[in-house]
């Protein structure tokens, strides 16, 4: 006996992108479209877009450092009615997030890089590192709750 089809609780997409503006923009557009479909507002979409952008740039710039320029990264989007979960997986050697310096310390304030991860942590509700730092999983909860995941 077949079950009646139900609308899935989450909208999902799995994408493989290269370090090209067109690929990144397409993935962002997909993300924002899914979020709009689940009723996320402007502030949520600003936060998630910013975090996504920083995560992807980090994957290509730091994760893929020394790898061929066309090495792709994998994007997983799971956009539910209450929370959006975005994972970015690179093919690099990974890293220890504890070693990332605090960019808000006076001695680091004028450094021209190193702010991406802090912005991700600030704008998202939860952030966790998996696969030895190769995979970043970011969660945005619609209720605005912020907690390190």
């Amino acid at each position: 006996m077949t079950q009646p089809a139900e609308k899935p609780a989450s909208d999902a997409a799995d994408l493989r992108i290269r370090n090209a503006r067109g690929d990144i923009d397409s993935a962002e557009e997909r993300l924002l479209t899914l979020m709009a479909g689940q009723g996320y507002g402007d502030a949520a979409r600003f936060a998630v877009r910013l975090a996504f952008e920083e995560a992807v740039i980090n994957a290509f710039r730091h994760g893929h450092k020394g790898l061929p320029a066309d090495t792709p990264a994998d994007i997983s989007l799971r956009i539910g009615p209450d929370e959006a979960v975005i994972a970015v997986t690179d093919q690099g050697p990974g890293f220890d997030p504890v070693t990332v310096p605090d960019c808000t310390l006076d001695e680091n304030l004028e450094k021209t890089s190193g702010r991406g991860l802090m912005l991700i942590r600030s704008f998202m509700s939860g952030v966790r590192h998996e696969m030895g730092g190769r995979r970043l999983v970011m969660t945005y909860r619609k209720d605005g709750e912020t907690a390190e995941g």
């Binding site: 004028e110 450094k111 702010r115």
Partner: peptide
């Protein structure tokens, strides 16, 4: 509408 941390880095370079 949006700027990235890379843009912040450029602003710091300009400021310097």
């Amino acid at each position: 509408d949006h700027l990235s941390s890379a843009a912040l880095g450029t602003l710091i370079t300009i400021n310097n």
